[in-house]
Design a protein around this nucleic acid. Structure first.
Length: 489
RNA sequence: GCCCAGGUGGCGAAAUUCGGUAGACGCGCCUGCCUUGGGAGCAGGUUCCUAGUGGGGAUUGCGGGUUCGAUUCCCGUCCUGGGCACCA
């Protein structure tokens, strides 16, 4: 097979880029740092959206939509929030162009300057809380559980397809609650939804935990995160859920009358997951032959490739192919019968491997004769010949097995690359090789800054960390639990 | 935003040293033949636009400059890649 991709071992960044481009997922656009998501990449995103949306609704949330533009004044009400986002905002200053008579060029009309600039949302807390103010009067209006599917813009200095683009797609949930406890429970619930989604649907094992003070979302009281490990040993923040306390309620004056008739500010959360997950999916599972998609997220779960010499052989093969296709469709399996005669079988094999299709069936004259079919699974690249009769059931079970196998493989990789470290040397050793280091930390910013000098960061303070006496890897001061340290994207 | 390195067909690129026919070589693509159980092979074509077809025009990110002549030298600018920083 002609080599299509750079090898992962040769150059991980190049391999990733090749894969995104050649599998037809996305490409860089003419606009600085932005991305064109191609149909196949978008199909993967749609699968993710459908599943997440289902999970949100299952937990009582509704979808709504808020404006793309945020007046500058809204944006600056919450001090920490503006501080966090000010450096990466796209700003609309004018509303009209005109033809410059001297040069004949289209220029911004200086007379069309906006009185107040508009910020293209980098996140929607401010405009949403400005709206919630009008929606919430009484404890009877709470909780307010809303999610929005949208695009946002953050003017990043350096960009990378899917992982960091100037514009990206995401969902952002924004909830309002009557009590602190309820809001905290919501934030915890939603990080749990992300964990379930990531592990069960995408096959990506994640660590769940709190961010440190310095890594927290701008304006949040607590940030919960899921952290995944990529095949090059770097961590990726895959989703976050924030407990916002009453910060935004105070900034936007969102108050309600309690059941006791008292006035109080509401308690808030926000949580988001983005198209970055597509990048995670690629970097966690794929190999040098291309994408490896877990069946649940694969836009095409089974592809059928006919093999034939001359036109007379085709009808019998097409009959078998279409019959199997129908059988799989009836079982709720997405299947493509690629009967194009413009590409040869070997070409198609390579193509669908590159696209990560979990199961491939090949049907040729031999199979028609014997009532058999060749089945190849993408995760292990194993091939076997099976009877056509009952193939639907076999594949239905196999898809579950592949889903599980891909998850277990990723989990095994993460386990093998997670190390408990008790000395500074052990820490730097793990960080050099790549992977998660579990180390004691005294909770101070000084020690955290020292860790950051290695270019690694504290990814999270795990939720389920067992209590354990130890001493901080930096200061030697006492510590009650280990934190997760890694180099990250 | 700062420090490097770059920007030439659909793609990887060559020519830049020392200014002198831009696109060598390869991939891909197109046509035909031969093939079809792993991106096979052979021949021809392939920068783009245009043309009643023995032609014409444009073209090395973009804008200026030097020069008889600029992909090459100078200034500016935009963009891309790597590093710092920032970040989902």
């Amino acid at each position: 097979m002609a080599k299509v991709l750079t090898s992962k071992e040769e150059n991980y960044a190049q391999w990733y880029n090749d894969l995104v481009l050649k599998a037809g997922l996305a490409e860089n656009s003419a606009v600085r740092g932005c991305m064109v998501m191609k149909p196949y990449g978008y199909a993967i995103w749609e699968k993710m959206k459908d599943e997440l949306d289902r999970m949100f609704k299952e937990t009582g949330h509704e979808n709504a939509y808020f404006p793309l533009f945020i007046p500058k004044s809204f944006f600056s009400r919450e001090a920490a929030h503006v501080e966090g986002f000010a450096k990466e905002c796209a700003v609309v200053t004018h509303y009209r162009l005109k033809n410059d008579e001297s040069t004949g060029e289209i220029v911004v009309d200086p007379d069309a300057k906006l009185e107040e600039e508009l910020i293209v949302r980098p996140t929607s807390e401010t405009i949403i809380w400005n709206t919630y103010k009008n929606w919430i009067q009484s404890y009877r209006d709470l909780p307010l559980l809303i999610n929005q599917w949208a695009n946002v813009v953050r003017w990043e200095m350096r960009t990378r397809l899917f992982l960091r683009t100037a514009e990206f797609l995401w969902q952002e949930g924004h909830t309002a609650h009557a009590t602190r406890e309820e809001a905290e429970a919501e934030a915890l619930q939603m990080v749990g939804v992300y964990r379930k989604f990531s592990e069960n649907f995408l096959g990506i094992p994640v660590l769940v935990g709190h961010k440190t003070d310095s890594e927290r979302f701008a304006g949040a009281v607590d940030t919960l995160t899921i952290e995944a490990l990529m095949q090059d040993g770097k961590a990726l923040q895959a989703g976050t859920s924030h407990f916002l306390g009453q910060n935004f309620a105070r900034a936007f004056d969102v108050t309600f009358t309690t059941s006791e008739g008292k006035l109080d500010h509401v308690w808030a959360t926000s949580w988001g997951m983005t198209t970055r997950m597509i990048g995670a999916l690629i970097m966690v599972h794929s190999d040098d032959n291309g994408l490896v998609l877990p069946p649940r997220v694969a836009p095409i779960q089974v592809v059928i490739v006919p093999i034939y010499k001359g036109k007379d052989e085709f009808p019998a093969i097409a009959e078998a192919g279409n019959r199997i296709r129908k059988e799989l469709l009836d079982l709720g399996i997405s299947v493509k019968f690629d009967d194009r005669d413009t590409h040869k079988p070997g070409w198609k094999f390579a193509e669908y491997e590159l696209k990560g299709v979990p199961v491939r069936l090949a049907i040729g004259p031999r199979d028609v004769e014997k009532g058999s079919v060749e089945l190849a699974r993408r995760d292990t690249l194993e091939k076997q010949t099976l009877p056509q009769a009952g193939i639907g059931e076999v594949i239905r079970r196999l898809l579950d097995e592949i889903q599980e196998n891909i998850h277990q493989k990723a989990l095994k990789y993460r386990t093998e690359n997670t190390h408990r470290v008790d000395t500074w040397d052990e820490l730097t050793d793990v960080l050099d090789k790549g992977g998660f280091a579990l180390a004691h930390w005294d909770g101070t910013e000084e020690s955290e800054n020292r860790i950051k000098e290695t270019k690694a960061t504290i990814r999270c303070i795990p939720l389920d960390a067992e209590e354990e006496d130890g001493t901080c890897i930096v200061s030697g001061k006492p510590s009650r639990r280990r934190v997760v340290i890694a180099k990250a994207y």
